[in-house]
Write a protein that binds this DNA or RNA. Structure first.
Lengths: 197, 197, 197, 197
DNA sequence: CATGAATGAGTTTTCATTCAT
DNA sequence: AATGAATGAAAACTCATTCAT
């Protein structure tokens, strides 16, 4: 493993690093981490294989930064939106948030799968996922409390709500089950969430 | 890839095949499919590497049969129990079923992760997972109808219920979030499920 | 690095392992350890690159076994001969031993260089060399004592004698200095050694 | 390989070149030529990797100049001292010279090892080593003759004496053998050398 | 002159699969 | 049928050298 990794300062170098992350993102998302090799990443990014190891310690290092991008793409928009709320109206918040989660999941579901698939065998991915969930839950709960929410077990509820939204998004995106009526399911899910809070 | 694979008929051969599947199960569950090699499987099964290719087309072939075992271990007990019900009493059924799901998940969660992780990159695993979910949902729904359940969107509800139970089991097993009060969460989940039906 | 290495039991496999060691011996001797790659070793040994890693943990593992062969080729014949002595007559022993050292060095000097060159950067080689020197010195000293030698500082003398013989052999083999009259030098060296004991 | 290399004339450039040689010296000495890369040398010298190729044809070019520095550090002081002698008194010269050789070896033994290790695989290093030994031997012999020494085989004796001193220094520096009494060995070595001339 | 980013061939090592015995 | 040695393509990673800026 390379001793030192380069922190690119010139714009061109930053672009290059980002292109590698993007290429990794797409390849990991489409064929999976273990089915992607560094040469493919380099080729897709339009760089040499060597330069990859100037910017990343190793292949896993790319994954870690891809995970950060994923977090920024998928969770941050939702958290940011919640944090800008002025008042609590779950009848309004929940449908809007569910829309967002579904939409963002649609754009990133392959990456979600690819990353989730590594939690079992790659500790750093697992740790990052947990930290991300903790962060999201904590931020949303904090905001709700600051807006006056005062019922018990808020953290558990937020955690569950986020997970159920993801679960539903997952169903929508993959649409694997012919017998499922998604609009109906959506209504059911929103009812569940409404009752939850 | 081997042209023909053997359908073992003698008991000794059946045992051998099963030992390979078991070895695969344990290894895939503990270190993941991509981190396991065929030599390790053969060794753990107490057979030669060559013989593996008499019983399975390739490494993926082992995975497929491991997946079947997983289905039998995890889903079938629950489905069977439901199918033996004489009457519907959700206040009784749901807590009992949740207990079962958590317990079975505890025993098989590593395999769950390992298999789930392959849905993105290995089509056959994805297909099998979907078929399994379809089957479980259909069987439970059918039973409930036969016992007189007549509210709408039953398939969507069953599907959701099963997924939420798994989601909760997953949380319990990994216990990754220090701020979660699991008994409280369990009550919340059971309430959600109770309201669902 | 391979988890396990194979201990070949069949004669064919033993031969193969030996052919790899031999190939390594020749290549390390002629072009040096760092200028030899595993593919070259495999090719010279007439085996595939993969099989090398069945018999050796890694490239360094080959070096270690090559070192053992070197020790057997170069030091053991001399030690064995000393150990078979019935009486001490340095006027007879020293010239004979010097002849042996020169001859063996002539046959193995390239390996000597190659191995010696690694003592600085490869700890295991250094350790083996030291152990070898210790062993040779101890065995010769022990034999001399058993034959009645009773002057002081025997270990220092034996150690020095062995090193000076090697030094002279080295000079003879490489014959790098045009101005050196080797027969004359030999006489001088033998006188030194004779006076030493 | 760079077509042309620069002969630095400005002081700043000379400093830069010397810093590269120094950096190479330290790195080759501590971890060996093959375990050092040009980036490390450049970094340690405080220059860019590119500039290295303005002053040296290639990595080997650095080694060659490092070797010159080594020669200046280790052999020249001893030769110079001999050349300043006014009369021959071996009882005085030999212990003093041995002291010098041991001291200089102590300061440079890592480089000695590193360079010696390359004689087998890098012809230019071998050639330089031989030329150096020839030069040292010739200069010392010439001086002794000019001071009236007239016994035969002087070149052989000087050559041997220098080598034995190095051999002893090497033993002292590494101190690898627990059973060696170094003061006693020193006395033995000095006796040998005294008898030699 | 100087920089350090970039190249890409080369290195070590792994492993699914085959095949001689 | 069974063994496990053998294959060789492919993977991750390194580094001497070049070159755009």
């Amino acid at each position: 493993m390379a001793d030192v990794i380069r922190m690119p300062k010139q714009q061109r170098a930053i672009d290059k690093k980002n292109r590698i992350i993007e290429a990794g993102y797409e390849l990991f998302a489409t064929v999976g981490y273990f089915n992607t090799n560094t040469e493919q990443i380099a080729k897709k990014a339009g760089v040499s294989t060597g330069i990859v190891y100037s910017y990343f310690h190793d292949k896993l290092g790319i994954l870690v930064e891809v995970l950060d991008v994923y977090a920024d793409n998928v969770f941050m928009p939702i958290v940011n939106k919640i944090e800008r709320l002025q008042s609590i109206d779950f009848d309004e918040i929940l449908p809007a948030m569910l829309e967002d989660v579904v939409r963002l999941h649609k754009n990133n579901h392959q990456m979600h799968e690819a990353l989730h698939s590594l939690t079992a065998s790659v500790p750093v991915v697992n740790d990052k996922f947990i930290a991300l969930q903790d962060d999201v839950t904590a931020k949303i709960a904090k905001k709700l409390i600051s807006l006056g929410y005062d019922k018990p077990n808020l953290l558990e509820k937020v955690h569950l709500a986020v997970e159920i939204m993801q679960l539903f998004s997952h169903e929508c995106v993959f649409d694997n089950h012919a017998y499922i009526d998604y609009p109906a399911m959506k209504t059911i899910v929103l009812n569940m969430l409404r009752n939850l809070f």
